[in-house]
Computed example of a mutant assay.
Amino acid sequence: MLKEVTVDVLAGMFHKLPIKSGLTQICFNPAMNRLLRKGPPVALARLRDGGHIEVSMSDYHGRILYFFGTNDPKVEETARFLLQPSDAFLDIGANYSTIGLAASHVVGPTGSVHLFEPQRLLSDRVQRAIDSGNYRNVTLHRVGLMDHDDKLSLHSPSYHSGMATFADHDEVSCFDIVEECEVKDIKTYAAPLVSGRTFGAKLDIEGAEPKVMPWLVDQPNLKFLIFEAAHNQSTLFETIRSSGLILYGLERGVLRVRLMRIDVLSQISRFHDLVAVRIGNNSSPPKSASPRELSSFMQSEP
């Protein structure tokens, strides 16, 4: 009981910290591992907007979410500032969906948020969070998005739900969970969801990005795309460059979120998260900006 109280107190304290990066070191270290070793494997995490979602404490994203109320403060802040009321937002590879759920408050009742998460356990938890939190503008799609309709094997390690992937790369052979999941062709499935309105997207599908990104960046009503480039860096860089979007990297600042413009491929390796934005015709893309500052340079209409 004392351990559970201590863990709850720590979570309450960590929720109030204004840090944007370094969450892994706080949540995963010998002292924290010892504290949680005999604790409950599943806990109810409080989101930053007051909603709740069930998480696995041994899961990388679950533990961070429990202690901080979000999976990634810098990505959440970037999405919030680049979105506007009435926009649509696609959270592709949503995991616990904290980015999409936070975005729902920005786009408002006239906007929409679409979460794409095929992992069964996670999608069950996300749907309960949507229902209990009364997120009326949020829809969960229990499918993956690819470049064709199919049923594919989704591989993931039990300790990190965020590494789940349909792609075949070197790490997959070590993953111990396999699920057969339905995938939909993004061209036909997502198009009606964003038709007639500007939209932003977060893409986190662990190596399968080349199957999905080309359609996204080809849409004139796409305002921004947040993604990782742990795999296929050259392909993703060329896809963004040929689209006319401007690429930025999210610096890992502890207390602030800063975006740095990426002009050459070699700069990508400095960053874990990237954001491609559509700059207005009369604007010159800044070399460096906060998400709020960058939003003033963006094209607001298709």
Rank of each mutant, 00 (worst) to 15 (best):
residue 291 P to M: 08
residue 138 V to T: 05
residue 89 F to L: 14
residue 75 V to W: 00
residue 210 P to F: 02
residue 215 W to D: 10
residue 260 M to F: 06
residue 44 L to R: 13
residue 196 G to P: 04
residue 166 F to V: 11
residue 8 D to P: 05
residue 282 N to E: 13
residue 79 A to F: 03
residue 115 L to F: 04
residue 177 I to E: 01
residue 24 T to Y: 11
residue 51 G to M: 05
residue 1 M to R: 12
residue 220 P to Y: 09
residue 234 S to P: 02
residue 294 L to I: 09
residue 187 K to I: 06
residue 4 E to I: 05
residue 231 H to N: 10
residue 118 P to T: 03
residue 230 A to M: 14
residue 181 C to D: 04
residue 100 G to Q: 02
residue 32 M to G: 03
residue 43 A to N: 06
residue 19 I to K: 07
residue 117 E to Q: 07
residue 288 S to G: 09
residue 256 R to C: 11
residue 85 P to L: 13
residue 5 V to Q: 15
residue 71 N to Q: 13
residue 225 L to D: 07
residue 132 S to W: 10
residue 76 E to M: 14
residue 8 D to W: 11
residue 18 P to R: 11
residue 147 D to I: 03
residue 90 L to W: 00
residue 238 E to T: 09
residue 102 A to P: 02
residue 103 A to P: 02
residue 236 L to P: 00
residue 59 D to N: 15
residue 168 D to I: 14
residue 238 E to M: 09
residue 72 D to N: 15
residue 252 R to K: 14
residue 188 T to C: 09
residue 235 T to Y: 03
residue 34 R to Y: 07
residue 222 L to K: 01
residue 134 N to F: 12
residue 85 P to N: 15
residue 190 A to R: 00
residue 89 F to P: 02
residue 298 M to S: 06
residue 181 C to P: 03
residue 289 A to K: 01
residue 110 T to P: 00
residue 298 M to E: 06
residue 200 G to E: 03
residue 18 P to G: 09
residue 117 E to V: 05
residue 28 F to L: 05
residue 223 K to E: 00
residue 145 L to F: 10
residue 134 N to M: 11
residue 32 M to V: 07
residue 228 E to A: 04
residue 31 A to K: 08
residue 188 T to F: 07
residue 173 S to G: 14
residue 155 H to F: 06
residue 172 V to H: 08
residue 103 A to Y: 01
residue 270 R to W: 12
residue 54 E to N: 07
residue 71 N to R: 13
residue 127 Q to V: 03
residue 168 D to G: 13
residue 93 G to L: 04
residue 167 A to R: 01
